[in-house]
Amino acid sequence: MELATLEPGDELPPVTIEDLQGSDMKLGAALLQDPYPPHFDERTAEEMGYPRLLNQGPFNLSYLLQCALQPAASPTALESFDTRFHAMVFEGDTVTASATVDSVRKDNTDGKPEAVTFSIELTREDGTVAVDGTATVRVPDE
């Protein structure tokens, strides 16, 4: 699975993150200094109508980028991302990140691939798309 040989329609192996842990969400809230209670406070989360602790948006983005960066030698190959957050993800959920090649940008002079843009999607077990968008990964020079 090399970036330089990918073509539109190719799919990367999906990345599944099982049984999201509330302890990770609490650690994330502390690291981000995020005071939004549903990320760390079960009682307030319940009072606000959430079934369990709420996963942070950047966590969900991380699962997607981990999937899209699988063929890259270094994460610094990431050129850009554009993501839309549609549905919430909660403690105990299992989510799957997928990445499908949308387009390949090629050099105007020699036609060599410069960057691959993936359509990315994070799906909950019930099939709900929580986050989608695109991620573009640079192809390293030979």
């Binding site: 990770d24 994330g28 690291l31 950047p58 991380s62 981990q66 960066l69 270094s74 994460p75």
Partner: peptide
């Protein structure tokens, strides 16, 4: 710790040696 919390196995986010190797 952010790599741990987001279950990211890429050790370039944890260690200089791994990042230099990349």
């Amino acid at each position: 710790l952010w790599a741990d919390a987001t279950r990211n196995d890429d050790d370039t986010f944890r260690y200089d040696d791994d990042a230099i190797e990349a």
